[in-house]
Simulated assay, not measured.
Amino acid sequence: MLYAPTGIAVVAEDLAGMRSQAFGLAEYVALPARFCAVQATGLLHRCLPSSLWPRPLTALSEKPFPLHDDLVFSVAGKGGAVGTALHHRGRHVVQIQNPRIRPDRFDLVIANYHDEIDGPNVLLSRTALHGLTALKLADARAQWRDRLHVSGRPLLAVLVGGANGRFRFGREEAESFADRLVSAARQTGANLFITTSRRTALEATAVLRDAVESVHGTLWSGGDDNPYRGLIACADWLVVTADSVSMVSEAVAGTAPVYVQGLPGKSRRIGLFLETLEKCGRIRMFEGALDNWPVQSLDDTPVVAARMCQRLGLENLFRDTLSTVVRSV
């Protein structure tokens, strides 16, 4: 399958997680990438599962439209429905995430082990795709190191998500979590720094803020100068809530031991994902105590990108320098 694309067209709903995965993969390919939004506004698009859409291309925004020589990255179910239609018209399409239709309707499918999908054209990753490269983490470490390591104390960094369709995280869950974090900070003498997300409930944020203040730590809940990358790059320990595969995947791309805070609820996919990382020795579940165990950065994005380029005959476009870990800063 030898051809010469001139760009990458990302076909997906305009959601941050989907953009992050597609553009994270695109960073490893030496081609310009642009976003083509899937907008399911028609009656049939809203009422029918995407796999049953009669005219999927009508859900694609007219501008920009994928060029004929673009390499298309379609994402998730709705993006995959459009990707299938583009592939049927002769486009080269790489599907990201389980499309929930036959994989052979794409050139390649890139999914996770926890998606429980397989096939001769399926590439599997332990972590979600993302763009938090080793070079970006090195830059963040240089930028944030002096600001986050207070008086030489170790840094206990906490990445908090929130409730979704599978997990709960309200006041009660925040109180239990906060008690554990305060105890861990006091036992280790660590500087406690918590960052919340848009999904974190206000009542949960208030509980966490009180906890942080009790140990003279810091809570960031929005505004300029987001410390997220700096926390991953500089932490001595990271604790991440279990609701987000993407957030855990970015956390394990750093070099700190990662703990995961379980939440009430259930997700088979996320359970399998965490089990995979536990077997790798990359994460442990958070019970309140902190330990230092030997870990290495885990990010399958460059590995999958290299295999994708090889399978598509685009080895000359793979940007392997992005996966080089810079340790001099």
Rank of each mutant, 00 (worst) to 15 (best):
Y28G: 01
R19H: 11
P66D: 06
L148R: 04
L156T: 01
R145D: 13
P302K: 01
R209A: 14
R186T: 08
P56S: 09
A185L: 07
R105C: 11
E315K: 15
A178F: 01
R327Y: 15
T205R: 11
F106N: 02
R198A: 15
D139S: 10
V122F: 05
L159S: 04
R105Q: 07
A40W: 08
L156V: 09
I270L: 07
L322G: 03
Q97E: 06
V326A: 14
E62Y: 14
E287Q: 13
G217R: 00
C280N: 10
R209P: 04
D70Q: 00
D115I: 08
Q39C: 13
I194L: 03
W220G: 00
S51N: 15
N316R: 15
V160M: 11
S249H: 05
T196F: 15
S244K: 00
K266C: 04
C234G: 11
A253R: 02
P32E: 14
S221L: 07
T133A: 12
E175D: 08
A174H: 00
S125Y: 03
T58M: 09
V94H: 06
W237N: 02
N98A: 07
P294M: 05
K266A: 12
L274Q: 08
A233Y: 05
L60G: 00
V82K: 01
H149V: 12
G90N: 09
D139T: 11
G254S: 08
D236V: 00
V260L: 06
R229E: 12
H88I: 06
L192N: 03
R268L: 13
P294E: 15
A163C: 06
E27G: 07
V109N: 05
S246D: 06
G313E: 07
Q97M: 11
W220S: 03
G313K: 04
G223V: 12
R199H: 14
E287F: 09
V93I: 10
T301I: 13
R19P: 03
I232C: 05
V158W: 02
A33M: 09
L290M: 04
A251T: 01
A85Q: 14
L219T: 04
A40V: 13
